[in-house]
């Protein structure tokens, strides 16, 4: 489903209407849903997760979301996760495994 999304998502936000500038304001997914770049996806084994939040800390794309009442549980935002595997590499409890995309 994600792969069907168009690349024609507006990259640029024109700050001043009188100039066309390569300027963007910080926003979620300014470059579109980069999750479609992924060839391996991280899958979190909730049973093994000790809520240390290292995956959240290390994720270079801020694609690990903190959820739950205490914001101490994690889940992957697959819209933006590029599948780099850093979270799986860093997890001390081997609670994240990389699964090949189908």
């Amino acid at each position: 489903m994600l792969k069907q999304l168009s690349w024609l998502i507006l990259l640029l936000e024109v700050v001043e209407l009188s100039y066309i500038l390569p300027v963007s304001k910080p926003s979620e997914g300014a470059s579109g849903f980069t999750g479609i770049w992924r060839s391996f996806k991280p899958v979190i084994d909730v049973g093994k997760c000790r809520k240390c939040l290292l995956c959240w800390l290390y994720c270079p794309e801020a694609a690990i979301k903190r959820v739950g009442d205490d914001y101490m549980s994690v889940e992957v935002d697959y819209r933006y996760c590029k599948g780099c595997g850093i979270c799986a590499n860093e997890c001390p409890f081997k609670a994240i495994i990389m699964v090949k995309e189908g």
């Binding site: 640029l12 100039y19 066309i20 500038l21 390569p22 300027v23 963007s24 304001k25 910080p26």
Partner: peptide, 28 residues
Amino acid sequence: KPFILDPDDPLTHGNLTYPEYFMEIRYE
């Protein structure tokens, strides 16, 4: 103008620009 860097109102300048938008920036 044309834009100002301000920590209270952050922006990114000169980021990756896809071919759909590039030529207009040159024309400017």
